[in-house]
Amino acid sequence: MITRTYRFAGKIIEISSVYHYVHQYCEEYAATGTPDFSVITDEEDIDYERKKSRLEDIAFGREMREYSSPYLESLAVYRKIAERMPAYDTVLFHGSVVAVDGEGYLFTAKSGTGKSTHAQLWVDYLGDRAKIINDDKPLIRIDGSTVTAFGTPYNGKHRRGCALCVPLRTICALEQAADNHIERVEKNALYPLLVQQVYRPSDPVMLARTLTLLDCMTEHVSLYRLGCNRDVEAAIVSYQGMKG
């Protein structure tokens, strides 16, 4: 077992793994201190991730992908962290968070819609004012009326993100469209998507906590729906529509 500690969303987490890979992956988040909690992975967890990945490939009609055990273990580690985080008022959310002038904008959509592409368009449009905090699976802490998005090492295939946090101003659901347009929406309009995009723990108590946190989060951030193409004009329309 290889054991080291890391700071994710303000919590010290002790990770004990079979392989070294996850520690390389999380290196930027290494920290010292008394752990808030520990996660331990073994071959059984790796097998679970392998089976899950194969089932997803079948469900989506994709060619079966083969992943290495060290990589699959890194997924198992984050899954175990996500299972525990609701106890600390924090959820894992599938989306891309961009910070502009100290405020966070979270783009979410089903896989393949273009979240990362749109986040990159913001960087292209806004230059140094925009920074990608996490391009895939940020942690979001909901502390009363304060909603904060945290960077984590699990930031997508392009590894875009940083070890920073930012107060979250908006959540924006992306849809592909020929012409760019944005509208502010009520919670009901996005709720099914938001429930799909938040990590749903296997423990029913933690899932109930997650849904309560999601309700609280939607009360304290603005919600938008964006129809967008892949032109930089999409970033102009969405930024101008959401900046207030």
């Binding site: 009901n188 029913p204 109930a208 309700d215």
Partner: peptide, 28 residues
């Protein structure tokens, strides 16, 4: 099934599966 929880949000009832359920959608 214990792998599903019922959550009340505004006027709607949603039935949400845990990560252990085979179904991964949401029933509103």
């Amino acid at each position: 099934n214990s792998n599903f929880i019922v959550h009340q949000t505004d006027k709607d009832t949603v039935i949400v599966p845990t990560a252990s359920a085979a179904f991964s959608g949401v029933v509103k």
